[in-house]
């Protein structure tokens, strides 16, 4: 009883907030509705028993992507209302493209047929372990090669970002700890006997 109720709740909120994403006047509200949609989609994944995907959805999409969107939207000072003007004229072509894609999906779905041998190829046996555990077991054994190369790709991305954006500025004052520590009292101050009435 509880599960169907949760399903309908999550899907309803997902659909509603997805609609608000494209209808909201204020782009910041759009992004916030997007985050709400992500959370509810994560709930749907939990109902399906895919708790790992749900966590990743929250961490990656809410924690990183949507927050990045939010920053960009808040920093860009463009009139979004202006941009949206005249969007209605694209509705016919949008409907045509959407219709074509829908037709393609229907064709594919109706013609989908597995070759008899393919079921043998599918590699993932269903185990009793939670899917985070099984993913971990696979990722660091069978797929360790792809995992390591992914690490190298991220390294190259990091080098690239530094190469393209980091600039050495001249005249930046930095703290020089060695100089600070080796400084003696005599370098910095001078003791002067001041005679009365004469000044320094």
């Amino acid at each position: 009883m509880l599960q169907p109720l949760a399903f309908y709740l999550f899907s309803l909120v997902t659909l509603l907030s997805a609609t608000f994403v494209i209808t909201a006047k204020n782009p910041v509200h759009s992004v916030l509705f997007l985050i709400l949609a992500f959370f509810n989609a994560a709930g749907l994944f939990v109902l399906l028993g895919a708790e790992f995907v749900a966590m990743i959805l929250v961490i990656v999409y809410v924690g990183a992507v949507a927050v990045l969107f939010l920053f960009v939207v808040m920093m860009l000072d463009t009139g979004f209302a202006e941009l949206r003007k005249g969007a209605l004229q694209y509705v016919p072509i949008g409907l045509v493209i959407g219709g074509v894609l829908l037709a393609e999906l229907i064709f594919i779905y109706s013609a989908w047929e597995f070759a008899p041998s393919i079921t043998n190829n599918i590699a993932s046996p269903v185990t009793a372990e939670s899917n985070t555990v099984s993913l971990g077991l696979l990722l660091y054994t069978d797929y360790v090669y792809a995992f390591q190369i992914a690490g190298l790709i991220l390294l190259v991305a990091m080098i690239g970002a530094i190469v393209l954006t980091h600039r050495q500025r001249s005249g930046v004052r930095r703290q020089k700890i060695k100089e600070q520590n080796t400084r003696k009292r005599d370098d910095a101050m001078e003791v002067v006997k001041v005679t009365t009435g004469k000044g320094v």
Binding site: Y145, A146, I149, A150, L152, I153, V156, I159, V163, L164
Partner: peptide, 30 residues
Amino acid sequence: LMVSANDLLSLYMGLELQSLALYVLASINR
């Protein structure tokens, strides 16, 4: 890695490692 790829996954990983480095090299004179 691309030359030794024997799997769609390793094909894609090798290709991306190569391409990403090439994108940066193309614009290294920033």
